[in-house]
Amino acid sequence: MSSETILSMRGISKHFGGVQALSDVSFDVKEGEIYGIIGPNGSGKTTLINCITGFAKPDKGQVFFRQKEITGWPPHKIAHVGITRTFQIMRPYYSLPAFKNLIIPLWSPRARKLGGWRGGGKHGDRDTVAVDILEEIGFERDSRVPYKLASTLPTGYQKRLELARCISMRPEIIFCDEVFSGLSMSEIAGMTPLIEKLKMEGVTLIMVEHRLRELFRVADRVMALQFGEKIAEGLSGDVIENKQVKEAYLGSEEV
């Protein structure tokens, strides 16, 4: 954990009409760590991701990626420098087969510039690369699953497909917007090693999660949000013991 800061937020604020979704949120993420963001419903977690990845413009504040300001950049430019995200509500390309879903990120300027996928190369056969990536993420190559329409896949596979879309961009940072939600225990057990593997490959992961137990198992540091404000930050174990966090999740009564 001695590595340098890859992403830093300075005083991000965002409001929708009269609702203050985020107020003055600042935090730093170090390269190669898994950073968790927790908070009750409506505490601004997804808005925070949107503000960083360009899907929403923050009213105030700055976002720095490797000391370079990226505040207010359009989403495709932010993805191009290597910050990708999954969507909480899965957004695969429903009318395409699962492996063809990956052709789109593989075709992106970033993926084409970096190239280097084994078997595929810069000008290689993207279909082969796509099936390789899907296999890595848990689609059985010899089964019919990778070739099925994305709309017919079960939730677990669609979540993996979201992650696969990010991976095929060869990102430096992945924002995982509730990848565990809606999954069964066994499906989560299958996802966790993927996350750990990504970390070992040096990818920085920022995970927004409701499933605290599963998150704390993988996360290095955690930040808690409530009503758009940062109420705690630190090691996983410390944050859950924090009084304010307990209040936010369980109400103000002593537990």
């Binding site: 989403p75 390309y93 300027p109 993926a111 961009m169």
Partner: peptide, 13 residues
């Protein structure tokens, strides 16, 4: 056509 947000998130204008 299917979903332009995902295309944006894939770094394509």
């Amino acid at each position: 056509k299917d979903n332009d947000q995902s295309v944006r998130a894939s770094g394509i204008n």
